[in-house]
């Protein structure tokens, strides 16, 4: 019967996703090097499994989209870190605001300009634009401005991996004096992966990176309707 087959597939892929995720997390705890991060291992393992079983994305996501739907409650959960960092916000709000504005501006314009120079299609260009903010926010912005949210999730993950890898070199090269700048570098450039990295440098850098990540996400979602209007006006 088609119904039971669909249910069985949904249970199988949901279970595979969760098991691979827990496995990757455990592996990373045992051997904490960057290329064994769950961010890389989980999707790679799932891709290999899907390719060997000849499963397409449509069949995979039909059974697992409930996990993606939980990104909604994750967005709500961001209220806690914002509330608990309110002292930092009150003290440093002008600098944080400027950092988020400049960072988001650079992220959007470089994605737009580089994608145009390399001749990428319109939907790819729009999916690349919100890639510097954390996934739940980036996917919301992407669907708002006419990109493909699923592709944006992929670009967000690649951005996180690349930002976390670039971060150390950037810290060495740039003459940064404040923990504020070091935190903003990771929070704006590499969202979740960057925040984890910033926590390794120092707890102050970590909190700032987390805060910058959330504020950048929030800022991008709030300007997305305006941005989509401008994009349509210029297209």
């Amino acid at each position: 019967m088609p119904f039971t087959e669909a249910t069985a597939l949904a249970v199988f892929w949901s279970a595979a996703t969760i098991v691979f995720y827990i496995g990757a997390r455990t592996l990373h705890r045992l051997r904490p090097c960057w290329w064994l991060s769950p961010l890389i291992v989980t999707p790679t393992a799932l891709l290999i499994l899907a390719l060997t079983l000849h499963t397409g994305y449509r069949d995979y996501i039909r059974g697992t989209h409930w996990l993606v739907a939980l990104l909604g409650p994750v967005t709500v959960a961001f209220a806690l870190p914002i509330y608990e960092q309110r002292a930092l916000i009150r003290r440093q709000w002008p600098v944080l605001l400027i950092g988020v504005l400049v960072g988001s501006g650079i992220a959007m314009t470089t994605a737009w300009a580089l994608a145009s120079v390399l001749g990428l299609s319109d939907s790819l260009r729009l999916s690349l634009m919100p890639r510097s903010v954390t996934t739940p926010f980036a996917m919301a912005v992407s669907s708002d401005i006419g990109g493909l949210p699923d592709l944006t999730a992929l670009f967000v993950v690649l951005t996180g991996v690349c930002g976390a890898a670039l971060g150390d070199a950037m810290l060495k090269w740039l003459p940064l004096r404040s923990s504020l700048a070091r935190g903003a570098l990771f929070g704006m450039g590499a969202h979740g992966a960057g925040v984890a990295k910033a926590h390794q440098i120092g707890s102050e850098e970590g909190s700032i990176a987390g805060l910058v990540m959330v504020l950048a996400g929030l800022f991008n979602v709030l300007v997305a309707p305006l941005l989509s209007y401008c994009l349509r006006a210029f297209a």
Binding site: P38, T42, P43, I61, V74, T135, P136, M139, L154, V157
Partner: peptide, 18 residues
């Protein structure tokens, strides 16, 4: 929820299959 966020967006990353 924030610590396990990766689990919730990994399915979307699989879009690369298409």
């Amino acid at each position: 929820l924030l610590a396990e966020m990766l689990l919730f967006f990994v399915p979307a990353v699989m879009a690369v299959l298409d």
